[in-house]
Design a binder for these strands. Structure first.
Lengths: 198, 198
DNA sequence: AAATTTACCTAACAGTGTTAGCAAAGTTAA
DNA sequence: TTAACTTTGCTAACACTGTTAGGTAAATTT
C-alpha cells in the first residue's frame, strides 16, 4: 500500500505547489490578474492539471483566503498569549490585526474584500466567527473586571469590531486618498477610548 | 454652429446610454461580470464605439462609482436639511448611509470595495473628502454644544467614520455570515453611544 | 504480459478587453 | 452641386481569460 501513499503524497505536493504559486502571483500582481495559465506556468504543468486539484479558480482563491485567516488567527493568539491583562490583550489584538492588514494587503483584500468573488455567502462563517469569539472573550473579561453591564458584551464586541475593521479597511482600500490626520495614532486612541467606555 | 452643438448633444446622449446600460448590468449581474460587449449589446452599437467615449472599461466603472457618491451625498444633504439639531443630523446621516448601502449594494461595493480596480490610488480623494467634511462639521457643532475639547473633532471624525463604515462593510460584504446579534439596532446604539461620548 | 487505471498533454470553445483598418454617411468648402 | 474632408460605426483580429473534451503514454494492477 506504499504506492498509493506515495501517490497521495505527490498529489498533495502539487496541490501545495498550486497554492504557493497562486499566493506568490497574488502578492506580486494582485488577485485581479491571477490566471490559471500563469499558475500552470509557474508550477511547470499544463493548465488542465490544476482542475484535478481544484474545482475552479474561485476554489483556489478561497483556499488562499482561508490560509490568510489561519495566519491572522495564529498571529493574534501568539500576541495575546504574552499579555497579562485583558486590556493589554485587546491592544495586542488590534495591533496584530492592523499589522497583518498592512503587511499582507493581498491576503486582507481577499479575506475582507467587499464584493469579493471567493469569500461571500456563508463560506467564511467559521473563520469569521473565530475572530469575533476572541474579541468577545477579551471584552467579557474586561467588563467583568470593571463590573459594568455584562449583557452589553455582545453589542460592544460588534461595535469594537466595526471600529477597528472600518479603520483598517479605509486605510487599506485607499492608501493614497487617506488624509494625513488619519494615522495609526488614531487607531491607538480609538482602542484606549473604547476600553475606557466599556 | 448649431450642427456642432447637435453632434455634441448626440455624443453626450450615447455616453449617457453607455453609463445607464452599464449601471443596469452592474445592478443585475454584479460588477464582476460586466463586459464591454454586453454594454454594446444593450445600447445596440458595436463594441468599439464605446472606446470613443471611454478610455477603457475601468473608466466606465469609475464614472459609475462617482455617480454613486453623488447620489449618496445628495441623499445625505436632503436628510440632514430636515433636522433641527446636530445630533439629529448625525443620526440622519448614519441612517442615510446605511440605507444607501442596503438599497444600492452594487454602488456601495464599487465605491468602497477593498481592492476595487476602479477607485483606488487617489482617484476618489474629493468624493471621499466631501463625505468626511460633512461628518466633521456636524461633530464640531456637537462638540461646541457640549463644550468638550474642540481639538478632538478631527480624531473623533475618523473614529466615527471608521465605526459606521466598518459596521456597514461587514454587513454588506458578508450578508449570510453575519450573526443575528449584529443588526441595525447595534448601529443605532453605536451612534447614540458615540454622541454621548463626544 | 495484458488490462486497466492515472497522469498529463494538446486543442478547442466561448468568452474577455482592446486596437487596426475600412466603408459609408454626414459636413464643409469651392 | 460637386469635391474634399471628417466623423461614425462597423468587421476582423490579437492576445488573453476559464474551462472541458479527447487522446496518448506511462504507471500500476491483475
Amino acid at each position: 500500500m506504499s504506492v498509493a501513499e506515495r501517490k497521495l503524497r505527490e498529489k498533495e505536493m502539487i496541490r501545495k505547489k498550486i497554492i504557493d504559486a497562486a499566493l506568490q502571483l497574488v502578492k506580486n500582481e494582485g488577485w485581479e490578474s491571477l490566471s490559471i495559465r500563469k499558475i500552470a506556468d509557474a508550477i511547470e504543468y499544463s493548465a488542465p492539471v490544476i482542475y484535478d486539484h481544484f474545482a475552479n479558480k474561485e476554489a483556489i482563491l478561497f483556499e488562499i483566503s482561508q490560509d490568510g485567516f489561519k495566519l491572522l488567527l495564529s498571529n493574534i493568539h501568539k500576541a495575546i498569549s504574552k499579555k497579562a491583562s485583558p486590556r493589554e490583550e485587546l491592544k495586542a489584538l488590534v495591533d496584530t490585526y492592523w499589522k497583518f492588514a498592512l503587511r499582507n494587503r493581498s491576503y486582507f483584500k481577499l479575506m475582507f474584500g467587499v464584493g469579493m468573488p471567493c469569500c461571500g455567502e456563508g463560506k467564511m462563517k467559521t473563520e469569521f466567527g473565530a475572530l469575533q469569539d476572541i474579541i468577545y472573550e477579551i471584552i467579557k473579561k474586561i467588563i467583568i473586571e470593571k463590573k459594568t453591564n455584562i449583557e452589553s458584551a455582545c453589542y460592544k464586541t460588534h461595535a469594537f469590531w466595526s471600529a477597528i475593521h472600518g479603520f483598517t479597511s479605509i486605510m487599506i482600500a485607499r492608501s493614497a486618498d487617506v488624509p494625513q490626520t488619519m494615522n495609526v495614532s488614531v487607531l491607538d486612541q480609538m482602542v484606549v477610548n473604547i476600553i475606557e467606555n466599556l
